[in-house]
Design a protein around this nucleic acid. Structure first.
Lengths: 192, 192
DNA sequence: TGAGAATTGTCGTTTATCCAACACATTGGA
DNA sequence: TCCAATGTGTTGGATAAACGACAATTCTCA
């Protein structure tokens, strides 16, 4: 399952850094967090930080990806199909993620965050599409994943803007018929 | 205050090992804890353990010393004199330490533990005696510290055996007049 | 009792982390 | 404006930790 086993020190240190960053981002805004702050909190040398991450934006990227992945796996969709319920639980996970972020004061970095989340979604969708379609359609699947990721993410932004009172499940349900029949018909046309 | 600053990695790893040992000793008896268990819990390499400690008994020794010291410092006696109240609070600390140990199932190692605790006490008493007496009396002070450490420790054993209901402060208070007048008169004779 | 398994200490090599120092922004007062 | 302070990213040399392997106990249980 896991690839070549990595040095335990690496895992330990990465976790230290990431946890410290998450901890700090609960206290200050992102723009006020320095590398020094992080390494001090993590009790590691500053040079070690640069051994693991390009810079603080690289860290942000990887932390967000990881937190998002945990959120997604927490809502156990695993190796599921790209079904209606799977899509709904992914959407729910994203909205939860958004809410947890808004408590963490990453104001001013919405664009960066949006990009990271969308990229993760694209990867996930692509992987799921691959499982239930022919490999020859690779290009189509990639593009479909892109469209789906933008679409779903956009929906989550819309949800956050207007209707945080509406449960995310209901919210996404409204669009579901269109999304699914599109996916289904594509699937049927290709004769999977 | 602190000596030459030690490599942060050393502090980190020592703490990892000690914490893991304390954690484990809450689950198993000491005799059932292996070095492998500890390093697995601490997520460090087994060889690293031997870089820091002679063997598992060395670890036990150092952990106990540390826990005891924390208990003692917690009851803040600091650079105090060897006064009645100081002695009482030290005694109280020891009884608390004993109780915390009995929860941790170190059955069969009472002798080892006793030796370690007594040695720590001796160090502490000697340091305090040094502060309030002439340096020429070094040999006397050393022996006095030995006697005091055995005596106080023995009292704590007695307390645990009979009268866990009696507050330790009251218990030791009964012997206090004799102890103190002894110390005082010695102090006077030497004309501090 | 004896054979297989587990634990203990140790060693040499490789790798991650520490440290001090560096040049180069960026910032915020005087 | 200038300059002191602070943060960034990089380097080279030193050191702690990881790894795998080893012989030598010690255990376990058939």
């Amino acid at each position: 399952m896991t690839q070549t086993k990595t040095d335990p020190r690496i895992l330990r240190t990465r976790k230290l850094i990431m946890d410290s960053f998450i901890e700090l981002s609960g206290k200050k805004e992102f723009k006020d967090i320095t590398v020094k702050d992080i390494t001090a909190e993590a009790m590691i040398n500053r040079a070690t930080f640069y051994y693991h991450f390009e810079d603080i934006y690289d860290l942000l990227e990887k932390v967000l990806s990881e937190v998002l992945l945990i959120n997604l796996n927490g809502n156990a969709f695993e190796d599921g199909e790209l079904s209606e319920s799977t899509l709904a639980s992914i959407f729910k996970a994203i909205t939860e993620f958004q809410l947890s972020l808004s408590n963490r004061c990453h104001r001013g970095y919405e664009d960066t965050i949006a990009r990271i989340v969308r990229e993760q979604l694209e990867i996930i969708f692509y992987r799921m599409l691959l499982k239930q379609n022919r490999l020859e359609e690779d290009e189509s699947l990639k593009i479909t994943a892109v469209i789906l990721s933008w679409g779903i993410y956009g929906a989550s932004v819309e949800w956050r803007r207007n209707s945080t009172i509406t449960p995310p499940e209901e919210f996404i349900k409204k669009a579901m018929p269109y999304i699914m029949s599109g996916i289904k018909s594509a699937s049927e046309n290709k004769g999977n």
